[in-house]
């Protein structure tokens, strides 16, 4: 098998935060991302899901090198991320782009759409002639389904869905290989979300793009992802192919998360009691398994030992003491 386009090895990021109110405050270590390993093959999509504070956005920033890891490393096309500011870094940056949640916040309100999209091209390719520049911008505008006349508009003159298309065109203009999309459709209306999801799939198909798709919306993640990683308190608790993971979740947290989604199709079907409580404070995580404080199955061992992420067969991985690892997969890995 060829090397994955993107690989993270034991990625860890800790922040020092102040806890409690003055004058009794003290420093605490917040383990936002705590040993995340993953890989994404070329042309594939990895969905990263979890509730707020689980570290999915921090993971996204670490993957792009927008944040330095405390430990661990990120490999892009087999190479470690280059040092910020170096020539290699500039070359790498063109190939990996970020798409944010709030398109109006991500765009410069004083720049017209065409200037906005073309800015990155000016920085990375000052050698391009005016006509090449113009053609590239026009191609990007067309690729995301905007009309040519949108080029002269300002962001506030566009609808939310059109603005997100501009953000995508701006990310695509440098012909990247990887897009990290952080909640790219959460700020959009329902009828527009489907348009952008379809657009992302079309763009992946036409340009062979690789996506890391970060979202709390499990339905959309299932729609768009090949593989899915479920995060809880800075760690991956379950990993697997989108269809099999959503069809038969193995970790109690994934099961609860899926059961909590209200759905038009499943209305009237009795649901299990929702999980109690809130996710714990990442600066003061519980001992052992981080999920044990809310887990309906937790027993003594869950408080004593942190379960490792182990293969359970069929490309699935689960971090839970109750889920039997797949013996065959374990041997193959050893």
């Amino acid at each position: 098998m060829t090397a994955p386009l993107l690989e993270a090895r034991s990625l860890t990021r800790h922040f020092v935060v102040r806890q409690g109110s003055w004058p009794a405050s003290h420093k605490a270590l917040l383990r936002a991302v705590d040993g995340v390993s993953l890989s994404v093959g070329k042309g594939r999509t990895l969905g990263l899901v979890g509730e707020s504070g689980c570290g999915k956005s921090t993971t996204g920033r670490l993957l792009l090198g927008l944040l330095d890891p405390t430990a661990g490393e990120v490999l892009f096309e087999g190479q470690p991320l280059a040092k910020a500011g170096s020539a290699d870094w500039r070359r790498q940056r063109q190939l990996m782009q970020m798409v944010y949640q709030d398109p109006l916040g991500a765009l410069d309100r004083r720049l017209k759409v065409a200037e906005q999209i073309g800015e990155a091209l000016e920085i990375h390719h000052p050698e391009f002639s005016r006509s090449i520049h113009r053609d590239r911008v026009a191609a990007a505008i067309e690729a995301v389904g905007l009309q040519a006349h949108h080029a002269d508009r300002y962001p506030h003159e566009l609808s939310g869905g059109q603005r997100q298309r501009v953000v995508l065109a701006r990310a695509l203009i440098l012909q990247p290989r990887l897009l990290v999309c952080d909640e790219p459709i959460s700020a959009l209306d329902v009828s527009i979300q489907a348009q952008v999801v379809n657009l992302l799939l079309d763009l992946q198909h036409s340009f062979g793009l690789t996506y890391v798709f970060i979202s709390h919306d499990l339905k959309v993640v299932r729609q768009i992802s090949h593989d899915v990683a479920v995060m809880y308190l800075g760690r991956i608790v379950e990993y697997g192919g989108a269809e099999s993971l959503f069809h038969a979740p193995q970790h109690p947290y994934t099961q609860a998360l899926l059961a909590a989604i209200p759905s038009v199709q499943q209305r009237g079907i009795a649901r299990p009691t929702p999980l109690q409580g809130d996710p714990p404070d990442p600066a003061a995580p519980p001992s052992g398994c981080a999920f044990r404080t809310r887990c309906p199955r937790a027993v003594q061992i869950c408080a004593e030992a942190m379960p490792a992420l182990r293969e359970t067969g069929g490309g699935r991985k689960v971090a839970c003491h109750f889920v039997e690892p797949d013996a065959a997969a374990g041997l193959a890995a050893a």
Partner: peptide, 19 residues
């Protein structure tokens, strides 16, 4: 336009244009 949580995945049918 709503994606499903189970069953086969199909292309979403979106409403063209915007409000």
């Amino acid at each position: 336009a709503l994606p499903a949580l189970d069953g086969p995945r199909t292309r979403l049918v979106s409403i063209p244009g915007s409000v």
